[in-house]
């Protein structure tokens, strides 16, 4: 496989890998490093890539493991920088500011979830992946994924309701 073919292979999911890494590592720079790391690792596996049924799933699993390792080694001095690059939308400035504010709040809630739930919310609610894929990537069974997802969604709802009724957000 040459470089061009490899790029074609990874381009559909490299953003996904990046977003997953960012969900766990929070900092954009660290997520970029992690993504590069994972893709280079994948490239070095080059010859064996054909053996995998879904390269995407392999990449996601590698990302998950890499980021969790990264977190483990950095837990002691966990410095996180939040970067938000919100895309422009056709909305009034007022609306945009308000949206950004509440979105940031949602992001914060998600980032406060346990890692497992973060991963699941990221893959299901943001990337819209099937339970089967998620279960495979996380090496869990589907029912456990569903349960964790439900728990995470309820936690988000609970925190959102609090901010909504108290008017903090």
């Amino acid at each position: 496989m040459n470089q061009k073919e490899f790029m074609q292979l990874v381009s559909p999911f490299k953003d996904k890998v990046f977003r997953l890494a960012k969900r766990l590592l929070v900092s954009t720079e660290e997520a970029e490093d992690a993504t590069q790391e994972v893709l280079v690792k994948l490239w070095n596996k080059n010859e064996n890539l054909d053996e995998y049924k879904s390269v995407e799933a392999v990449a996601m699993t590698m990302t998950k493991n890499y980021c969790l390792d990264q977190l483990k080694s950095k837990r002691a001095s966990n410095l996180t920088i939040v970067h938000n690059n919100f895309t422009d939308r056709e909305a009034s400035l007022q609306q945009k500011v308000e949206d950004n504010d509440t979105w940031k709040w949602v992001e914060k809630i998600i980032n406060d979830l346990p890692e497992q739930q973060k991963l699941i919310v990221q893959m299901r609610d943001i990337e819209e992946m099937e339970f089967e894929e998620i279960a495979k990537i996380l090496e869990m069974n589907e029912q456990a994924v569903r349960t964790a997802l439900s728990r995470a969604r309820k936690m988000i709802r609970e925190k959102m309701t609090n901010t909504h009724s108290y008017g903090i957000g």
Binding site: Q3, F6, M7, V10, K14, D15, V17, F18, R19, K22, E32, T35, Q36, L39, V40, W43, N85, F86, T87, D99, T102, W103, W105, V106, E107, I110, D125, I126, E127, E128, I156, R157, M160, T161, H164, G169
Partner: peptide, 24 residues
């Protein structure tokens, strides 16, 4: 109405892209 930002965030979070080149 309270769920709006949640779903809004989900759609927005999917837009983010990986821009750096890959040092292959």
């Amino acid at each position: 109405e309270q769920y709006k930002p949640v779903f809004g965030y989900f759609s927005q979070a999917k837009q983010e892209q990986f821009t750096p080149s890959i040092p292959l």
